[in-house]
Design a protein around this nucleic acid. Structure first.
Length: 221
DNA sequence: CGGGTTTGACCTGCGC
DNA sequence: GCGCAGGTCAAACCCG
């Protein structure tokens, strides 16, 4: 464990990467598809925050309590409660945190001896990268290339729609995400990522593998 | 049959 | 200390 530094595979979800992450930019990336595009082909997901992207596609919605959302405070709500300033979407984004620390945080509260049910609101150390963004989409789940397993759903105060909890299905990966649709604007979905993937993006690898093989073949390897 | 979803119960932090 | 609310667990269920 000690000294073992797991690589943080892209996409590490950081503000800068959010700008460039291909899967967050539908018009520019063929990989991007709404997760249930087959059932709702007319809908298209649209990133609307952070406010760094093309103005005609993205808009800022400052009336979300990002602080509560990101910190998981009990007062968390998207119900348009007053918020003084537009907060950055990224909080506690300690990119420099070692994977070891992150994994340590993941294991926190999971004692092998004490078998308990429910995790409760365990406060995580500040080393766990966490950020949120909004998309305008009919689909709750963005296909970000990773595989997720839903492990819970909870009704949230001041919101008509429940919050869904997902966990990365990769064995060694403990990245989580929360998905919630705004009651104020039902077309908007807020996705909160927590943690950093320590494995390659499966869909990306699926796409790239044949290309790589072909490149190797053509280059004589 | 394996993997994912649903859902009620449980745990825990926080405010009062 | 108590109650509320968010987060998680895990059994049951569903589906390909």
């Amino acid at each position: 464990m000690e000294g073992h530094q797991e690589p943080n595979y892209p996409p590490p979800l950081t503000p800068s990467s959010l700008i460039s992450l291909p899967f967050l930019l539908p018009p520019q990336n063929p990989l991007f598809t709404p997760s249930s595009a087959s059932t709702a082909p007319s809908s298209s997901s649209q990133l609307i925050s952070p406010p760094l992207l093309e103005p005609q596609q993205h808009q800022v919605l400052p009336d979300i309590d990002w602080v509560s959302l990101l910190s998981g405070s009990p007062a968390a709500g998207f119900g348009g409660q007053e918020i003084n300033n537009y907060k950055p979407l990224v909080e506690n984004n300690n990119v420099g945190a070692s994977a070891e620390n992150i994994n340590e945080a993941d294991r926190e509260g999971k004692s092998a001896n004490s078998k308990r049910k429910g995790g409760g609101r365990t406060r995580k150390p500040a080393s766990r990268p966490r950020f949120a963004f909004q998309t305008r989409s009919a689909d709750d789940i963005l296909d970000d290339g990773y595989r997720w397993r839903k492990y819970g759903q909870k009704a949230v105060k001041n919101n008509l729609y429940p919050r869904s909890y997902y966990r990365c299905t990769h064995h060694t990966c403990n990245v989580k995400k929360q998905v919630q649709r705004l009651s104020k604007d039902t077309s908007i979905v807020v996705t909160t990522y927590e943690g950093t993937h320590n494995h390659p993006c499966e869909k990306l690898m699926e796409t790239l593998t044949p290309l790589l093989k072909q490149m190797q073949f053509l280059s004589g390897f």
